[in-house]
């Protein structure tokens, strides 16, 4: 029927955006994750555009002898752009709030991770497995909160409760 081979340039651009986006998404600081989400979101938008087939004359408005562009793909891209915009704003706010609270915006450790790490360190079975039953008296939640490894290189970790509230 029609030529369905996608535009090679778009395919390459999508591949690069996805690769960079996935890399950034795997980072630990929220501001880099936001960039990753933006790149990935735009890659998916382009993918939708490619899925709509080759470009043609303006759809819906008037009639023309040339083949029309697919309006549905464009409508979907528009919706996806709006959604990504909203979510990006939300994650940015989240990252700012995290910075307000902790002076960094790293995604923090899961409490369960810390619990397992602590058990492995002691190499002993859990006695009560409690949040507060550890030998050193540090709350698991606090320990998880204060563990971060990317930002603030070379500087001492901020003491909990030091930052502005």
């Amino acid at each position: 029927m029609t030529d369905t081979a996608p535009n090679l340039t778009l395919v390459v651009v999508i591949a690069v955006l996805v690769a960079a986006g996935v890399y950034l998404l795997l980072e630990r600081s929220l501001s880099r994750i936001v960039l990753g989400i933006v790149l990935l979101g735009n890659a998916v938008n382009l993918l939708l555009l490619v899925a709509g087939g080759a470009a043609g004359s303006a759809p819906i408005v008037g009639t023309s002898d040339q083949p029309m562009s697919d309006p549905l793909a464009q409508a979907m891209v528009l919706t996806a752009i709006v959604i990504t915009l909203g979510l990006t704003a939300f994650v940015l706010a989240l990252s700012y709030r995290s910075w307000q609270l902790h002076r960094h915006d790293e995604v923090q450790d899961d409490v369960e991770d810390r619990r397992i790490a602590r058990l492995a360190a002691r190499d002993a079975p859990s006695v009560a497995g409690s949040d507060v039953d550890s030998d050193d008296g540090v709350d698991l939640d606090d320990e998880a909160r204060e563990t971060h490894d990317e930002t603030d290189e070379g500087r001492p970790a901020p003491v909990h409760g030091e930052g502005p509230r």
Partner: peptide, 17 residues
């Protein structure tokens, strides 16, 4: 909640993508 929320939000956005 910010700690738990950031993980939740990023995972949910990834699944949506």
């Amino acid at each position: 909640r910010i700690r738990a929320g950031s993980v939740y939000v990023v995972v949910a956005i990834t699944s949506s993508l």
